[in-house]
């Protein structure tokens, strides 16, 4: 019998430990496939954050460093500056990259650091049990916004990829989703491009992936995918937000 689908070599044998319906697993698989297809598993050092995304260090088959909360890009830059010929990527949640680690993300982009960052945006702090994130949308109830996010008090949710896209050193910025097979395919293309940008030494690349958190959203997996489509996709600009000419030519 022909084998038409196999676990990516970019992943270890460790089984994903995420809640049912969580899309972290999908996103990690896409990255793993890209590492395998680009034949860079053995040349890659991943940086894991704090939060649910942090478990990724056990799932990828490349070398990994666990960073303090929000510092993944700074850590990754330290690695890349020490070993410029290696591939370095960070895998971070929205709270990690867009709240506590904002300064590192902005300056990594401003300096055009040759690393790839994957931001997983599920509009909530997952691991700590569902608190408000900078990406929590208006009216959304979390344990620290029990009456719903109040844009007057808490500000409007931050469309972080758009912030990064403004900076010259960020040469590729995309916002994708893994809510449907079609979008998963698009997401993989974006992730692959973000790694190719690094291989070509063009500058900083960020891919934001909209993700679900059924547990903390209090929904079934299917409902959470619908909720993501209906509530998140309209407020977060989707698609390729920035593609410089050099990246276009890749």
């Amino acid at each position: 019998m022909e084998k038409i689908f196999a676990r990516s070599k970019g992943l270890t044998d460790v089984a994903f430990s995420f809640c049912p319906g969580c899309t972290h697993g999908t996103i990690m698989r896409l990255i793993a496939e890209v590492l395998e297809e680009l034949e860079i598993i053995e040349d890659t050092i991943g940086i894991s954050p704090v939060g649910c995304a942090g478990f990724c260090q056990n799932f990828f088959s490349c070398d990994f460093i666990g960073a303090p909360h929000g510092r993944a890009q700074a850590v990754g830059i330290g690695v890349k500056r020490a070993l410029p010929d290696r591939t370095v990527f960070t895998y971070q949640g929205d709270g990690d990259i867009a709240a506590i680690g904002t300064q590192h993300a902005i300056h990594a982009a401003a300096r055009g650091e040759k690393i790839t960052s994957i931001m997983v945006n599920n509009a909530i702090y997952g691991m700590t049990g569902g608190q408000m994130a900078p990406t929590t949308i208006e009216g959304m109830k979390t344990s620290t916004s029990p009456y719903g996010r109040d844009n007057i008090l808490d500000g409007a949710p931050m469309d972080f990829p758009k912030v990064i896209a403004n900076l010259e050193g960020a040469v590729y910025v995309a916002s994708v989703s893994v809510d449907s097979p079609k979008n998963i395919k698009k997401a993989k293309e974006a992730i692959k491009k973000a790694f190719k940008v690094q291989q070509a030494g063009l500058g900083f690349a960020l891919v934001s992936v909209l993700s679900t958190c059924p547990t903390n959203w209090g929904m079934t997996p299917v409902d959470s995918l619908n909720w993501l489509r209906e509530n998140m996709m309209p407020i977060y600009e989707m698609g390729e937000l920035k593609v410089t000419e050099e990246v276009e030519a890749l």
């Binding site: 050092i45 940086i47 460093i65 960073a67 303090p68 510092r71 700074a74 850590v75 990754g76 830059i77 330290g78 690695v79 890349k80 500056r81 020490a82 070993l83 300064q103 590192h104 300056h107």
Partner: peptide, 15 residues
């Protein structure tokens, strides 16, 4: 900032 600097040291030292 200083936080960035020490974490860059952390990353570089890992290599």
């Amino acid at each position: 900032d200083e936080i960035g600097a020490i974490n860059m040291c952390y990353g570089a030292a890992c290599t």
